[in-house]
Each structure stands twice: as structure tokens, then as C-alpha cells.
Design a protein around this nucleic acid. Structure first.
Lengths: 353, 353
DNA sequence: GGTTAGCACTCATACCAAGTGAGTGCTAAC
DNA sequence: GTTAGCACTCACTTGGTATGAGTGCTAACC
């Protein structure tokens, strides 16, 4: 059975209508609302075919039809028109990014917040992380008489702080010396040779054994903690606004999933390849049963040196995919351009004149 | 009208019962369940008096009574028995704190998570902040060819990173020199004299004008950002578990409030004095109308040098105050002891032998 | 005066039965 | 292939009727 033009149109009508109203839509409604030039009976026959193909389903006998996951999939892959953003929206997205450059965590938060407000869905933004993480620079900074912070800059330009508490803190100059020594050691050895570095350092600085030992531990944990990605969410409460989640049980499941860090991260990591495209996972296509009624639209943003972060939009399967994709594309473009202009040293991108 | 012993007992019965069941409780139930030695009619008379005093209310004519905010207040202030924590609970709370020393953000997150799991309420933990914030130490660390991170250690031992993007990055040695110069300047001037520091620095390092300017800007913003407190929440979804919030509208209001950073912060800042005590705000006592059906139990933890953070527990007014207070006291004690032992340089507190 | 039994009254909730209407599937005619 | 017509399904609404938990009041009791 193939899909002629009219059936495509009917499917599209059902999907767009259902996205708007969340109500099952019947043959008569389509006949009246969309000018297909045929009667409701004909549409009824077509709908029967569409159902046979698994593209739409009937919640119960005397109701209209709603799209199935497969229906949405077909729509998303073949039928969906890309949507132009309004100038105001585009500008808003740009200003959010540009106004928060420099403080990566704040930038993420504000991005998430803006997207949540714009889409009315739930947003998750993960900090950039690199598949191959190497430490680029280490600096010890004194905090008080008993503790120093090890500032660790990784290849992917992430900056992490580890507080080390030690018996006694060397003076600034010595801290600098030790930092320098570690930096040199890191350049010459790989992290696998941490043992070697440790023993080398300890012969040079036997009097700071405690500090050096703890510092190396921190370095190792920094590398390991690579999979301990930070992330920011916003618009979680939007979930409750959708009639499909007015059942508290369902909403609670979703909330639980959203609080479960590991779940989210694997969800984002899954679909393999991190490329430029926007990925869409519809309903049951993801195998977390808490999110079977949700769709996830996500895209990765490049952060230089193979490192990337992810922005994910989570909403009901009845989601405005077209708009969401446009918004995601726009924000990713903004983010990457700002990041690029930063590392180019010139801020020549996207300023209005 | 005064409250004799029996009336107190009746009020207590209503409150404890309602905390457990969330159902209005009637005279007959009290007479049967609690052995007061009088008939339901007598209890009925007493309940009428309690209602006249505004301590309990009737949701509708043919229902039992439930405690009012004033009833809870009386209970919390005069009647509530402090509750001993089970050894397992105490141990859990201790291990959470001890296992996460050193990474302040992770510690907060885990603390929030543990408390949420334990109490079944929503937890908000704010990072420590100081009423008088001074910068103690600054260190520049290179990131790549175009950016350095300014690591700022404040008096309250918070460590903040600001990424500065500059035309060209001086080598490590020069970065150290500049850092040192700023540190010296900060010791001699107050932050109000930032202008003076700036001009002094710029005569010393004219070739790094850009970097120095941006660094000083970062310092100022670090001081200002003092009120931009970070905080961590956990157990937000627990809200949905309570029958009083099964009305989606209400739940959504609460969620919105919890996502509104400023609201939460002012909520915590409000009740003035930050001392050792656990503060309890019941229902309408706080003036955020979104949280009128919630109670907030919060306590501050000391972080040395006048700086403190706050741990807040948010739940329905029908909250297990006694347990919540005990848990809060315990976790605060653990946190403070660990913090103290860190700055004492010896970890001699609370290890099992 | 405090306590109690008895009783009328209220009112949310559950239950049931009938009615309504949106929507379908099928058949026969066009 | 399309359409009109019709029987059928079934969620949802409406209204009327219990049911029962709980109260307030009164009169009697200790």
C-alpha cells in the first residue's frame, strides 16, 4: 500500500492539528477544516489505510485518530517544513548568548532558561566535554592556612577546581614552582605514567609530599570525572502544562527521570555520532520507559578540540518539531560563532551595525 | 478561653494524624484512636473551641477538622517533641558529608540528594556566601592562545573562575608576576580604590593593558556577584507525591517558584538573623503566594569568616516538622564539623574507630 | 459545670441510568 | 474510486438517589 498525495495531506492534517489541540481528530473535522475536495467518507477510508500502516492510532473506538510514533517519524523525516524564526526570536537568542560570554556556567543557565521560555518545553544543557581528555595546565592557588585549590585546565578548555587540604601550605612562590614542575611533567609524560610523575615530583619536593600526592590524586580524578558532566535544566514545570501529563503519575515519572543525572547523560550520549545534525528521538524510540511519552530533540555544539556539549529539548511526542529544530539550530549557530570568535581572538561575528 | 490539657492532646492528635494521612479527622475517630477517656461529644465541644481559637479549620461542613497555620505554629513552638534519628540515618548523613569533602559543589549536590531521599520533601542548598566579601587571592592561569582564566579566591574561601579572552596571552611567568602584583595591590587598597589599583597596574604593565583591565573588571564583578548565589535543588518531584498538590495548578505554581532563583534566595535571606537555630516558616507566614501551601524549614551552616550557606526543606504545611528539624540539625552539625576539621588542619572529628 | 446520648441536618462522594454526540465501519449506489 | 446513509460504539455528561462521615444542638445525667 503506498501513500498517495491525499493520504500524506490527511496525515499532515492530523499531525499538525493534534500538535495544536491534543485532541483526537476525526474524518469530518478534516473534511471541513482542510479543503481536500472529498467527503468525510473518503477521508475515513484513507484514515483506515493510514491506521493499517501504523501511522495513526485510535485511542478508543468512538474517537478520532492521533498520530503514532511512526507517524511522527515519517512526518519529521519526510514531510516537515523547516520554519523561519521571527526576527525577535532570532535576536533574543543571539543576545542571550552574547550577553553571557565568559562565564560558561552562567551562559548555560541562561541559554537553558531562554530556550525553555521560548519553546515551552523542558531544556537540558550539558557542559562541553571531550572524548579524549588531557590536562593542559595546572595551577595551585592558596585559600587559607590549611588549604589550596588546584585549578586544572583541560584540553577542552574546561576549568575545574579541586580543594586540597594539607597540613601546611607553602608560600606563593613555592606553589608556583610546584605548579610549574607538574606542568612540565605533564607535557613529558602521558597520564598513564602518573606513577612516574609522582615519584619524580616527590624526589624534587620531598618536603611537600602531602600536597604533591593530593594534587596528583586530584589530577587523576579530574580525568576520570570527565564523565561526570555538569548540566543545567530549565522549564521542568512546563511538563505539567501539557494535558497528556495531567496524570500525576506520568508527570512524576518524567520528573524522576530528569533528576536522574546518569539517565539523561546516557540518553544524550546514545545515538552515537556527534555531528552537526539535530537528532530527534520520538516516544518509544528511546528505551527509557519513563520517557516513552516524550520526544527529545537534541543537538551538539562544538567547543573546539573535539569537545562538545549537548542541548536537549524534552517535550511530549506531540511536540512542535519544526519550531524546536529551528530554535535549536539557531542557538547552536550562535553559540558556536561566539565560541569561535573568542578563540580567534577577534569578536567579528554577528554584531549588528 | 484557655487550653486545658485535653484540648492540647486533641490538637496534637489532629496534627499528628493529619500529617500522616492528609485526611480531615473527626471527633469519633479521635475518641476511638486516642484514649482520652471522654466521649466523642465532649471532644466535639473541645474541637469547636479549638476552631474558635483559629487552631483548626473545617474544609467543609460535613468534614472533620484539619490544622490551620496557627495550629501548626503552636504545635511547632510549644508542643513538638524533638525526635531522635535512627543510627542508620545518622550514619548515612555523616557518610554523605565525609565522602564529598573537597569539591564544594559536589558536596552540596549530594547533600541535597540525600536529604531529599530521606525526608521525601524538596531540598534547596545554597553555596556559602559572606555578607562582607573581600578578595583574598587572585591567580591567572592560561587556557589557550587567546584566553586565560582568573581564579579568584574570596575571604569566604569560595573559588570562582572568570574566563578572560585577550588578544595575546603572556607567558606563565608574566602571568604569575601580574597575579602577584594584583595580590599585593589588593592587600594595600580596599576594593573601593579599584580605580587606583587600575592606574597603578597599568603603569607597571602597560603592555598588558587589555588583560589587566579585564582582570579588574572580573574582580569587581566577582564582588558584585556575591548576591548571585549558586544553589542546588533535589527532590522537586517529591512535591507531586503529596495529595494536596495533586491539583496540577498548585503543583505548577510551586515548581515555578522553585525555578525562580531570586525568589528562593530572598525567601532564605528574609527572616533576618542567621544564627544556629532552625527556622520554620509555615504556610501563609511567608508572603510568596505560590508557596502559601508550603512550609519551609531552613537552617544556616557556618563556613567560617562570617560566611554561611543555607539548607532549606520545602514541603506541604502538613509536614513532619519534628523529623525535618532533627535531620537538618544533624546534617548541619556534620557539615560544620567537617569544615572545621578542614580548617584546623587535622581530621580528628567523627571518625569511627 | 462538665459530660454524654440522641437526633436532625449538612454535604462530599459514590453510584446508576439515561441521554448525547462524535466518530467509526460497512454497504450499496453513483 | 467516491459518496450517502445507517447502524453501532463508547466516552462523557447530566441528574437523581443513596450513603455515610461528621457536625451542632438539646436535654438529661453525674
Amino acid at each position: 500500500m503506498d501513500l498517495n498525495d491525499r493520504k500524506f495531506k490527511i496525515l499532515e492534517a492530523i499531525i499538525t492539528d493534534y500538535i495544536k489541540t491534543a485532541e483526537p481528530i476525526g474524518s469530518r473535522t478534516i473534511a471541513k477544516k482542510y479543503d481536500l475536495g472529498v467527503s468525510s467518507a473518503t477521508i475515513r477510508n484513507d484514515m483506515s489505510d493510514l491506521e493499517e500502516l501504523g501511522l495513526i492510532v485510535q485511542p478508543h473506538t468512538s474517537a478520532g485518530r492521533i498520530p503514532s510514533d511512526r507517524g511522527y517519524r515519517l512526518y519529521v523525516d519526510k514531510m516537515m517544513q523547516s520554519q523561519e524564526l521571527s526576527p525577535e526570536t532570532a535576536e533574543l537568542l543571539q543576545s542571550v548568548v552574547e550577553n553571557n560570554v565568559g562565564q560558561i556556567d552562567y551562559l548555560m543557565q541562561q541559554t537553558a532558561k531562554a530556550l525553555a521560555a521560548l519553546t515551552n518545553y523542558t531544556i537540558v544543557v550539558t557542559e562541553p566535554k571531550s572524548p579524549k581528555l588531557n590536562i593542559k595546565h595546572v595551577q595551585l592557588v592558596p585559600i587559607d592556612e590549611r588549604s589550596v585549590v588546584a585549578v586544572i585546565v583541560t584540553e577542552n578548555k574546561a576549568v575545574k577546581n579541586h580543594v586540597l587540604s594539607v597540613g601546611s601550605v607553602p608560600d606563593s612562590e613555592q606553589l608556583n614552582n610546584i605548579s610549574q614542575a607538574v606542568n612540565n611533567a605533564i607535557k613529558n609524560y602521558t597520564l598513564q605514567d602518573m606513577e612516574a610523575i609522582a615519584s619524580a615530583m616527590l624526589t624534587t619536593y620531598p618536603e611537600h609530599k602531602e600536597l604533591v600526592t593530593k594534587l596528583l590524586k586530584a589530577l587523576i580524578s579530574a580525568v576520570k570525572q570527565n564523565d561526570n558532566v555538569h548540566y543545567y535544566t530549565s522549564g521542568v514545570n512546563n511538563i505539567l502544562g501539557f494535558p497528556e501529563f495531567s496524570d500525576v503519575e506520568k508527570a512524576q515519572n518524567i520528573f524522576r527521570a530528569l533528576e536522574e543525572k546518569d539517565m539523561l547523560i546516557t540518553l544524550f550520549d546514545k545515538e552515537g555520532d556527534h555531528n552537526d545534525e539535530v537528532h530527534i528521538v520520538i516516544g518509544g524510540e528511546n528505551n527509557m520507559k519513563e520517557l516513552q511519552d516524550c520526544s527529545i530533540v537534541r543537538a551538539d555544539y562544538n567547543y573546539g578540540n573535539d569537545s562538545y556539549g549537548t542541548i536537549g529539548v524534552i517535550g511530549p511526542t506531540r511536540m512542535n518539531y519544526s519550531q524546536t529544530v529551528s530554535v535549536l539550530n539557531a542557538i547552536i549557530k550562535n553559540l558556536e560563532s561566539v565560541i569561535k570568535s573568542l578563540s580567534d581572538g577577534k569578536n567579528n561575528g554577528g554584531r549588528n551595525g
